[in-house]
């Protein structure tokens, strides 16, 4: 009994190395657009329950990596494993079913649909009653419950971002991909978004963020990856990267 106890502890400490706790592994991926590779062999990993940030200068392939993970771009080489299952090259709709959500950078909501309809579209593939999912999303974003019948296009920027988040959360994904979640928002709204990201993460969703606002993003992240020209450049714990001089100088503006 005692021995088991010790083993459990050791197991706990060894989480970083244990593949079973990895929710997403991207292994040496090469992908891009029709005639142009953007990613030249990127590898990242996210453990269950983590917030992971991807930072890097413009054109380093951050958004491309997200689209690739979500099955929106053709993968030329490499492998993506989600919850122990190879999902390389499968269609987005199947990836959604397996428990991944994605909030794209632009046009992250259906502007001519009402708030409620946006959320319903997030659960389109679900056969069950969606009222529970709605409740859960409303608990995180109470304002969406009040504005259910308003066209999403008529909302403020911050509220539209919440609609985008809410839509992606309808199926309670195990992993949520966020592409520039704070871009184009007023400072107050940014605080709100980062606060919500932590809240969503605490409820058990692992999160992968791509962010221009790298300092804020790394500050709430367990780990981060720095990309450059479609390749891995640095990786480390969030606070570690924030203190790394090279990273500071190159990507965080001193």
């Amino acid at each position: 009994m005692y021995i088991w106890g010790v083993r459990d502890d050791e197991w706990g400490d060894g989480l970083m190395e244990n593949d079973d706790t990895m929710i997403l592994e991207v292994d040496n991926i090469v992908s891009g657009y029709t005639d142009l590779d953007i990613l030249h062999g990127i590898s990242i990993g996210i453990e269950s329950g983590e917030i992971v940030s991807i930072i890097g200068p413009n054109g380093s392939g951050k958004s491309t990596l997200m689209k690739t993970i979500f099955g929106l771009l053709r993968i030329r080489d490499g492998r993506i494993v989600f919850k122990g299952e190879d999902i390389t090259g499968i269609m987005p709709e199947r990836i959604v079913r397996k428990g991944m959500g994605y909030v794209p950078q632009e046009k992250e909501f259906f502007s001519s649909l009402t708030v409620l309809e946006n959320l319903e579209m997030g659960a389109f593939i679900s056969d069950c009653d969606i009222s529970e999912s709605l409740e859960r999303v409303y608990r995180i974003f109470p304002v969406l419950a009040e504005k259910g019948r308003i066209r999403a296009g008529a909302l403020s920027g911050g509220e539209q971002r919440m609609v985008g988040f809410g839509r992606a959360l309808m199926l309670s994904p195990d992993l949520l991909l966020l592409d520039e979640p704070s871009a184009g928002l007023a400072p107050k709204m940014r605080d709100m978004v980062f606060g919500k990201i932590i809240e969503i993460n605490r409820s058990g969703t692992s999160i992968l963020i791509v962010e221009q606002n790298a300092k804020r993003s790394l500050a709430i992240s367990d780990r981060g990856y720095v990309l450059e020209m479609g390749r891995n450049r640095f990786e480390g714990a969030g606070c570690e990267l924030l203190e790394n001089e090279d990273v500071l100088r190159l990507y965080l503006g001193g």
Binding site: F70, L72, P92, E93, I95, V96, R97, Y102, P104, K107, E108, F109, F110, S111, S112, L113, E117, M121, G122, F124, I125, R167, A168, L171
Partner: peptide, 17 residues
Amino acid sequence: RALSDNIDLARISGINV
């Protein structure tokens, strides 16, 4: 309506486009 509004987002939402 969602498709005619934003077909990429419809795909991302898992809708069978």
